[in-house]
Design a protein around this nucleic acid. Structure first.
Length: 824
DNA sequence: AGCACGCCGACT
DNA sequence: GTCGGCGTGCTC
């Protein structure tokens, strides 16, 4: 090792603790810099792109240092603010920097090598090969560049590696480690004439095609689209639009290309369109909005964070737009966060309308190439081209901002802001507050139903509180009616799952040509099947949950691991054939509606019907355009959608939410019901909400009816204080997992005991969660509740120490331990 | 996380 | 005896 050589500590995209030190070869010393990506080999084969965290000249001891292979970036991909942010996330949420890297950077920017295997043509077997070896070879002969995963699949082997190793020794195959960059510039396929034809020549060509009608049509369509005879320069024609307008297939186009009449060429384009898109001026705010916005501006003079508590349809978005404009004028960036589902075309188009192509969108359903382009766009920080407003979901807090002025967190109470699995288990709202602090920026939280924690922060004076209690254009708050399920059942007046109130409500709305939204917080047909004679319920074989019955494909599905099976013909326990479904989900509601209202156009919106991005948008579009009468859905229908013609919202079963065993169940039920109710109502007519419940006197239901957030807040706060929950205490959940339940229980008891010695009564459990086994791993939780004022850093340090002590015990070292800070 | 190595039971 | 399964440990 030369004196004076340089080393780089790298973050690798792996869930491993610590950084990895590599040496920087002489020829790369000018290139490698903090924040850039470098290519390194890791272990015996793998190749990764690591991020340079720091550079130094202390040779590491105890292992042989590998060289950095190459440097990928001309400019740093990660700026200093991001490094600070990553450090905070990894420290606060107790995870490795590698895990933050994995979550923060789009996959297209994280190189990862893949092993490719191919057959050697010159191979001659000297000895007889085994059957599995023959099988593998036959697969490899048929296809090139096979990955290990596909080989495992095609051969049906669990692990083909040992065989591959032997085949490699025998010289039958070649193995190559290839780094794939998934990101490619998007290429558009265009069509043009093969050469410059004169008018006469063109006529001849067309005549020549008189017996090939389809080809002629394509040529005509091309001349039409390119405005051949009109324009001086032909307009660009894409292959896609040509085929569409001529109603032809690509094979006919290919014939014309082969005949050298047309030709195909490619141009790469920026996926992000910076072209036209006109912008319109800001809308004027009404008196209430103007008052709110000046209160927000005032509050930012003394506070960094402000909560805009505005009822549904009060026009919060318009206020955001005005504030964004101010930041743009100051040359600052704005991050507008939205919860996953609510990222609708509605809000995108409103923002695009005003800010045109200064708005970038970062979407969970964007493909990776698009995400890379958004990332690069912001990173380049080009005043001409870069976005100033980013509209994005949770993960957009990791974009390479360098000059944030404002972060808006819309629907602040939504729990989709919290990432659950995998690590980092961060809450985008809380992390965004730290991000704002790093940038010296302001944060505006907005919602109709604030999270208890947020409202408490306002009451304590940490955040400013701005209220907006008037609906836009003075639309009236909906009338909320309760329908007593108990009574209706007793009097036998139920129409299947509908109370007479709701049934009549739907009938009336349909008669008036108005739209209806029905809400049930459960997808599938029935939550479970049950044997009528012995009470046996089918469970998932990998997880400890009952299977949900889905009628449309006649399958029993596990909502935890996705495992699905045919429903059993008879009870597995007593062989009775009398299996009945219990409870109901969205699918059954849809089914029953079709029976009762055969003339109505009904659609269902839940995870099952919106797997693809377009499916979700199509549904919304159809509903907006009144091509549907009734929309049945899970919580998806409650999220930030505004429809103009909904006169009735029905909540099928309020109790199932209220009785959920979680300390936030009441808060969440209130939020859910209030949000769904907000979907009802139109410009000139008051909307109606019908809530079906067994317990009409329930205080949460009562506060929903009165639209009384404050009383809900106060009851919740006293309960939270009494039962030691946030916002009075901070929660850290420790999850232990193992395949062996007995061992797991012992480990959890040991850990809980040692933690109790330190934290005393602040330790709760170990307790098995509701679903105590997922994918063959048993799960146990230990909960730590610590006072808000005590140091979380110290508590985390102790937790880590105790977890490591447990892992040091020989028989417990295979137990997996995870932390979830501020769990939801 | 992946991957290699090593131990052990089930087959030719 | 070998093959193939799984548990254990390491990666700069």
């Amino acid at each position: 090792m030369n004196a004076g050589s340089l080393f780089a500590d790298l973050i690798l995209p792996l869930p491993l603790a610590g950084l990895f030190t590599y040496s920087i070869p002489w020829e790369l010393q000018n290139e490698v810099a903090v924040g850039k990506r470098v290519v390194v080999s890791f272990g015996s084969k793998k190749i990764y792109s690591g991020i340079v965290k720091n550079i130094h000249s202390n040779p590491p001891e105890g292992y042989e240092v590998k060289d950095i292979v190459a440097c990928l970036d001309e400019f740093p991909l990660i700026n200093n603010l991001q490094f600070s942010f990553w450090d905070w996330i990894s420290d606060y949420y107790q995870c490795n920097l590698g895990e933050v890297y994995k979550a923060a950077i789009p996959a297209g920017l994280k190189l990862e090598s893949q092993t490719k295997i191919s057959y050697r043509e010159d191979f001659k077997a000297e000895k007889q090969l085994s059957k599995t070896e023959e099988l593998i070879l036959s697969i490899l002969k048929n296809s090139k560049d096979v990955s290990i995963q596909t080989l495992n699949q095609a051969s049906g082997l669990k692990n083909a590696l040992p065989q591959l190793k032997k085949l490699l020794e025998k010289g039958a195959i070649e193995v190559e480690e290839r780094v794939l960059s998934s990101y490619k510039e998007k290429q558009i396929k265009y069509v043009r004439l093969f050469r410059d034809y004169s008018e006469d020549e063109l006529g001849e060509v067309l005549n020549g095609l008189s017996r090939a009608k389809k080809q002629q049509e394509i040529l005509f369509a091309y001349l039409n689209l390119s405005k051949h005879s009109i324009a001086d320069k032909p307009e660009k024609v894409t292959a896609a639009e040509l085929l569409l307008s001529s109603q032809s297939s690509s094979s006919i186009l290919k014939t014309l290309v082969d005949k050298q009449i047309l030709e195909i060429y490619f141009e790469s384009i920026d996926r992000l369109d910076f072209s036209d898109s006109e912008t319109s001026p800001l809308k004027e705010l009404n008196a209430y909005q103007s008052k709110a916005i000046s209160e927000i501006r005032d509050s930012f003079k003394s506070k960094n964070t402000s909560l805009l508590h505005g009822v549904t349809s009060s026009g919060k978005t318009e206020i955001y737009i005005h504030l964004i404009q101010e930041q743009i004028n100051l040359g600052k960036q704005v991050l507008y966060l939205l919860p996953e589902i609510a990222l609708t075309t509605q809000i995108i188009s409103r923002l695009k309308h005003v800010f045109g192509n200064r708005v970038g969108v970062y979407h969970s359903k964007f493909n990776d190439a698009e995400r890379v382009e958004v990332y690069n766009n912001i990173q380049q920080n080009d005043p001409e081209k870069s976005y100033q407003v980013i509209l994005g979901v949770r993960s957009s807090i990791f974009l390479p901002f360098n000059n944030l002025g404002l972060i808006i967190i819309d629907e602040e109470h939504e729990n989709t802001y919290k990432q659950f699995d995998p690590a980092p288990r961060y809450h985008a709202r809380d992390a965004a507050l730290f991000l704002a602090h790093l940038h010296q920026a302001k944060t505006l939280l907005g919602t109709a139903t604030p999270a208890i924690e947020t409202y408490a922060n306002c009451k304590q004076g940490k955040y400013a509180l701005v209220e907006l209690m008037h609906r836009f254009q003075d639309i009236k708050m909906p009338e909320i009616q309760l329908a007593d399920l108990k009574e209706a059942k007793r009097k036998k007046r139920m129409h299947s799952i509908f109370t007479p109130e709701l049934f009549e409500g739907i009938t009336l709305a349909l008669d008036n040509k108005e739209q209806v939204i029905l809400f049930q917080n459960r997808r599938g047909y029935a939550p479970f099947l049950e044997c009528k004679s012995c009470g046996w319920v089918p469970h998932c074989e990998n997880c400890s949950v009952s299977l949900t019955y889905h009628q449309y494909n006649n399958q029993l599905v596990c909502h935890y691991c996705g495992h699905s099976t045919q429903p059993p013909q008879s009870c597995k326990q007593c062989e009775s054939t009398d299996m009945v479904d219990k409870g109901f989900g969205t699918e059954k509601i849809e089914d029953e509606l079709r029976g009762f209202f055969p003339q109505a156009r009904i659609a269902r919106m839940d995870l099952d019907t919106t797997r693809s991005k377009s499916a979700y948008e199509k549904l919304i579009y159809k509903f907006e355009n009144q091509e549907l009468d009734i929309l049945v859905g899970t919580q998806m229908v409650s999220k930030g959608l505004d429809f103009d013609h909904v006169s009735l919202v029905g909540i099928l079963n309020a109790d199932s939410m209220l009785n959920f065993p979680d300390f936030r169940a009441h808060e969440r039920s209130y939020q859910m019901m209030a949000q769904v109710s907000g979907r009802a109502g139109r410009k000139n007519k008051q909307g109606k909400v019908i809530i079906q419940t067994h317990d009409p006197k329930h205080p949460i239901v009562q506060s929903v009816i009165k639209n009384d957030y404050l009383s809900m807040y106060q009851t919740q706060m006293s309960e939270r204080e009494e039962f030691i929950y946030p916002p009075f205490y901070r929660l850290i959940n420790i999850t232990l997992k193992h395949k062996n339940n007995g061992l797991l229980t012992q480990a959890a008891n040991t850990l809980a005991k040692s933690l109790r010695k330190i934290f005393g009564i602040r330790i709760f459990g170990p307790q098995a969660p509701l679903v105590s086994r997922i994918q063959n791993y048993y799960i146990v939780n230990i909960l730590l509740k610590i006072e808000k004022k005590s140091s979380p850093a110290k508590a985390k340090w102790i937790l880590n120490r105790e977890a490591n002590n447990l892992k040091a015990i020989e028989r417990f070292k295979t137990v997996m331990i995870q932390f979830d800070v501020d769990p939801m």
